[in-house]
Each structure stands twice: as C-alpha cells, then as structure tokens.
Amino acid sequence: MIWLVWRQHRKQALFALAALAALAALVVPTGLTMRGAFADLGLPDCVRTLGKAGPANNETCLTAFQQFNDEYQGFLLVGILFLVLPLLVGLFWGAPLVAREVEHGTHRLVWTQGVSRRQWALAKFGLVGAATLVIAVGYGLGIGWWLGPLNSAGQRNRFDPLFFDMQGAVPVGYTLFAVALGILVGTVWPRVLPAMAGTLVGFLGLRVVLATLARPRYLPAETLTFPIQGTAVAPRETASDWVLASGVRNASGELVVRGGSIECPPNATGPGAAGCGTGLGVEPGAYNWQLYQPADRFWLFQGIETGIFVALAVLLVYLAVRRIRRIA
C-alpha cells in the first residue's frame, strides 16, 4: 500500500515541496531583513517596556515603530494571501483522494485486489494525513517566525482576526480539517470538481462562523475600566490584548460612547472650563470600558481552535471510511 500511495501521490508531494520551497525563498530573506531592521531600530527594548511605561514617555520608540511599520506593514497583506494555503491543500490533496478514483472507476480495480477497503483507506488517509501534518507544521511555525516583528510592532497584534489564523498551531488544524473535509465530500459526491467546490464552501463557511462567532467566546472575556481623566496611560493594544469591544460608560453603567475611549490629562478642562468629554455628552462619573481577551491567552486560544479543527478532521475521516464501504 505504501508503494501505491507514494506512486499515486509523488507528483503532488513534489509539487507541494516545491511550493513550500518557494514560500521559504520568500519568507526567509524578508524575515531576516525584517528582524535586522527591528533590532537596528532598537525596537526589542521598546517592546519590553511598552506595556508598563507607556509610549508617551518614549518619543524615540514611537518614531521607530512608525518607521518600521511604514516600511514593513505591506508584508501583512502578503501574509493574508497565505491564509488560503490550508484550503489549497484540502482542495488538491483531499478532494480528489476518493473522488478521482470513483470518477475514473479505478476504485473497482484497487478495491478488488487482496487488500480490504478499510486497509486501503487507512493507508491512504494516514500517509496523506502525515504528509499534510509535516507541511502544515512547517508552514505554521515558519509564518509565526516571520510575523514575529510585525506582531509586536503595534500596528496589528497576533490576536487579531486573520493574523491569529495565519500563524502558530491553527494552520495545522485548518489544513488537516481541509484535507479531511475534501476526502469526505469526495466520498459523498464522488466527482472531482463538485468535491472541490463542496470543500471550498464547507471550509470557508466553518472557518468564518468559528472565527467570528465562536472564537471570542472560547473563554469569558475580561473587562477593564479606567477613569476618563487622570490616567497616565490607557492599557494599550500593543500589549497584544485582543480588544473585543470598547466605549465609555456613564456613572450608572450605560454605554454612552461606542468604540474608542476618552483620555484627558489630569485637571485638564475643555473650552469654557467644561469638564473632560462634556462636548461628547459625557457627564462626570463616566469611565472608559473595554472588553478583551488578555494577550497571554494567545496559545490557549490557539490550542482550543486547533483542537476543534483536529477533532472535526478525525470525525470526518471516520465518516469517510464508513462511506467508502457503501461505494461500488
């Protein structure tokens, strides 16, 4: 079986390796340049002091961040393109796995040799799954390393939607899930193109639903409040918290300003000696409010999301093995 799987999929494997090499050729040099620039600008020190001392007291840091972001934030957009890679693996490795056999009728050739269908399925899914795992781990770690400086440069943090999805452990979960989904759709709808279409729709659908509805609720979000006047510094996103919602509440807790915060220096007054924020209809006693997931939950959330997708992948493969028994 191993010989057969290798013989059938060696082209795909070599193609994937070539693609991975091309990706590395892009990521490694730019990653090294980025890291060099990050260090030259003295940003590692800024990052270390950032959450604690605040940026206001460090003009040089602000300028350096600005400079770094101006130069490199374009890479973030390139990075978004990488989001489709797990899907591509699902489309080109997963969907044809069973669908092509049935479309060409070769399942009747291979399932009537001396190997049971279950054995065939386990060998095939197992080996393709293992190759997927290796590629996905390489990809996840590589992109995580590449995004490192951009994550901490303040423009975006790694907890943000899209940036969370493109690094760390989750790409592994997505890729395994995409391949498993492709396999199952291929058994339900055993034609290559419909199987690919079904995989595309299913994958995007579940990803969007989980990312927008479920992910913010993996753990109860924490709340942060701070006065609108007199704070030296607001807790900053650069500290990599994932801010889900923010605003200003009045003394009785009603949300009077949606989004954003009001930060006045101590004892400052507005025009006509009005109180801080009066122009916005904010009365005395109001305070800033933030709903957020703390930065240190990043890996926990990565683990939860990866777990969900890996569990789904296992379930889908199980269903596919069952479905295969009914194909003739």
Binding site: M1, L4, R7, Q8, H104, T106, R108, L109, T112, V115
Partner: peptide, 24 residues
C-alpha cells in the same frame, strides 16, 4: 470492471508491480 479502469499515469510494468504489492 466495465471500461477496464486502470491508473492511466501508471505504466503497465508499474501496474504489475502494484498487483504484487496488493495481493498475497
């Protein structure tokens, strides 16, 4: 089977090898 399905990118030699791997 109907239409004598074979892996079309395999050579005849490889198909014979495949049979050897899949049958006792």
């Amino acid at each position: 089977a109907q239409d004598t399905p074979l892996y079309r990118d395999f050579t005849a030699g490889e198909l014979v090898t495949m049979g050897g791997k899949l049958n006792r």
